[in-house]
Simulated scan of single mutants.
Amino acid sequence: MTTIDDLWYLTTQAEQRAEQVHHQLTDDYEEFLDRSHARRVSRPRFRTLAERIAEFGAPYGAHSVVYRPSGELLLVWHSGVEKWVVPGGEPDPGESFREAAERELAEEAGVEASYRGLAMNVRVEVRCDDYSTWGVLPLFEARVEHPTTPDPDDPDGEITDAEWFDDLPENTRDREDLLAWREFAFD
């Protein structure tokens, strides 16, 4: 008896959905930074990410690059990964990526911002053994005009702090992407 590994099918579904979302984002927005990452993950993690990509087109949801006119960036402390990260997460049913990014910003940092478009469109390739697939990670550009102190109220309990940074800490996830975006956006 031959067993068919459903991961092959799942990766195909994920790639098709990722392609749809990628084209939608690039058609809807102009002047954003393209980046890419490749990650090798365990088999259970690969399945989880491939399922998310097949459903949403994105393995990690949508995020916001939040800045002040001075160039300071808002980061939140994610206790699960023990790093500073940009606010964001998975969309709720019926929510667009931008709506998810806005909701997550309100929950994770407690600030209001004006959304200006797409800051980055990151292609995230995930691999495990002989399997690979990819998804998009949309990061929306959000500007805070008025001095405001972040006040996290994360219902998941993963975000425990939020701060403005001029110099990004070394333990910032995807630090190089954020520095590249800042140069792209402010030069």
Rank of each mutant, 00 (worst) to 15 (best):
I53M: 14
A54I: 02
A54H: 07
E55K: 10
F56S: 08
F56P: 03
A58Q: 09
P59F: 12
P59I: 03
Y60L: 04
Y60F: 09
G61S: 04
S64G: 09
V65E: 01
V65N: 03
V65Q: 09
S70R: 07
G71C: 12
G71I: 12
L74T: 07
L75C: 09
L75V: 13
V76Q: 02
V76G: 03
H78S: 07
H78K: 06
G80E: 10
G80A: 07
V81T: 14
E82I: 00
K83Y: 09
K83L: 12
K83E: 09
W84P: 00
V86E: 09
P87Q: 00
P87G: 03
P87H: 07
G89Y: 09
E90G: 02
E90N: 04
P91C: 08
P91Y: 06
D92T: 07
D92M: 15
D92R: 10
D92S: 11
P93T: 08
G94T: 02
E95C: 03
E95P: 13
S96V: 01
S96N: 05
R98L: 14
R98I: 10
E99H: 06
E99T: 01
A100G: 10
A100V: 01
E102P: 14
E102H: 15
R103T: 00
R103L: 11
L105R: 02
L105Q: 02
A106T: 13
E107G: 01
G110D: 08
Y115S: 00
R116P: 06
R116G: 05
R116C: 00
R116M: 05
L118S: 04
L118V: 06
A119G: 06
M120Y: 01
M120K: 01
N121D: 07
N121L: 15
V122A: 11
V122Y: 03
R123I: 13
V124N: 10
V126T: 05
C128K: 00
C128M: 05
D130P: 06
S132Y: 03
S132I: 02
T133G: 15
W134L: 04
V136M: 14
V136N: 15
V136G: 07
P138L: 14
L139C: 05
L139Q: 02
L139R: 00
A142P: 14
R143K: 14
R143S: 02
V144L: 07
V144D: 05
E145G: 00
E145P: 04
E145A: 08
H146A: 09
P147C: 09
T148P: 04
T149V: 11
T149H: 14
P150K: 14
D151E: 08
